[in-house]
Simulated scan of single mutants.
Amino acid sequence: MRSFSRTRVVLTTTAVALAALVAACSSPPPPPPPVVQAPPPTPPITLSASLVERASAFRGYMARAGAVSPDFQNGDQIQASLKVGAAYETKSFMNGAVAYAAVLALQDPTFVGSVREVAANPTQRQEMIANIFSNPSYAAVFKGSDSAAGLIIDQIGGDGLKVYMAGKAVKQAAYDVQKSSWSKASVLDRDGRLASAKTLSATPALAESADVAVLQQASTGGQPLGLTPRAATAPYQPIVIRGLAVAALAALGAAGDNNLTSIDALSGDWATANCLNMAKLNLYQCLAVSKPHYEDIFCLGQHILIDTGACVVKGAGASLPPEPPRMLPVKESIAVKGAGSNSAKAKAKAKARKPAAKKS
């Protein structure tokens, strides 16, 4: 009987243990550790294809205008050069200058690297994007902005200076060419060539596909343009400030197609646009009264090449060469000195500016 009781106790204990073991096996597993989400990846450098095309169109125009030759042999050559020079629309031209400035700024590794550090932090990135759109000057706070600015000033200012100097040579040709009898003949279809200049001035310039590919590669770091940065001291002029801003937005991943409207607003500059508009208006007025071929050369040299080149040089913060002192002939000097009223002085100075009167 005692043996039976002991067996019963052992069996009971075993049953309890088995029940506990089964209960333990059927309990829910412990909760998994919390998932730590990785931060979003840094967005790539993004510059809209439309911006690259504008940059290429601007660069192409400056190259063509800077290559206009003063060696005219007939009226057809003059009219062809007028078409080359008049072929830009002010707003798209200004947007193209800023887009090209952005591509140039993206060639500075220090500037790009500094912006990319901010891009790695989502909160800071969004704050900086908002700051730049509200005030483009924020882009100048990044390390390397001074050397990126130097690239813009040297390249765009240098292109503007080439156009300006080409205009000086063409303007001088307006006087020199008068040795040839053909230059004094009247321009054919004067109204038509004025209308053509106005049409070209309302049509945005087109980019070349090969150049677009070069600038696209350069803007994303694939194939740099091989430029050497130079530190430039602030304050910067409008094209530089806005170029730095668009470049910074590109390095933050915020200069794509969906940002074009905001970037267009950012790229505008009243002073440079007004300078370019005045150059166009003066061109129209000049062509409206110009009759012989040599006067068309004067309009081309002064109001297309010199005026446009000067607008770009000033907008980029570069320097124009100093003007030599103007030496007046004796009779003209007396006429100006003896003029008793502002209108008389103005007439004397206007006479001195006419291509037929004297060499520039």
Rank of each mutant, 00 (worst) to 15 (best):
P324L: 05
A205K: 10
E117D: 09
G167L: 11
Q155I: 13
S145N: 06
S92N: 06
S69Y: 11
F58Y: 15
K83V: 05
D154L: 01
I153E: 06
Q37N: 05
Q223A: 15
S290D: 12
A234Y: 10
N282Y: 08
F4I: 13
T13D: 00
K280Y: 03
Q79A: 12
T228G: 01
L244G: 04
V112I: 14
A352D: 14
Y164C: 07
K337V: 10
V177D: 12
I304A: 01
A335M: 08
V112G: 09
Q77N: 03
W270D: 11
L266E: 05
V115G: 05
Y294H: 07
L225Q: 04
A57G: 04
N342I: 00
S290F: 02
L300W: 14
C25S: 13
E332R: 10
K143F: 02
G60M: 00
Q178W: 01
L106Y: 05
L260E: 15
V98N: 07
A20R: 08
P41K: 02
K179E: 13
R54K: 09
L47M: 15
R2G: 01
K168H: 09
V289E: 12
V115F: 09
G256F: 03
D154M: 03
Y100V: 03
N121A: 10
P39D: 01
K331N: 13
S196Y: 00
T233W: 00
K354I: 04
L283I: 08
S333I: 00
L21Q: 04
P109T: 14
R64Q: 14
A169H: 09
M1C: 08
K354A: 14
T13P: 00
D211W: 00
V103W: 08
A218F: 08
E208T: 04
R242T: 02
G253F: 10
A234P: 15
S81E: 11
P238V: 06
V163E: 02
V170A: 04
Y175P: 09
G75P: 12
S114N: 12
A148L: 05
A234V: 06
G144A: 06
L51F: 02
A245P: 02
V240S: 07
A24D: 11
T13H: 00
A213Y: 01
K345T: 10
S262R: 15
V52T: 15
Q223E: 15
H303E: 10
S69C: 10
T12D: 01
A55N: 02
K91R: 14
A67K: 12
T261L: 01
P321K: 12
S209D: 14
G60R: 07
V68D: 11
L194F: 06
S267E: 10
L260Y: 04
P32K: 06
K198H: 04
A271L: 02
V103G: 05
R2I: 08
T123P: 02
A335R: 12
S92I: 00
K83Q: 10
P325W: 09
P29N: 12
P39Y: 02
G243A: 05
N258C: 00
P32R: 02
S262A: 15
R2D: 06
S180C: 01
G309D: 00
D296L: 08
D189S: 09
K314E: 01
G157H: 04
V16Y: 01
D191S: 13
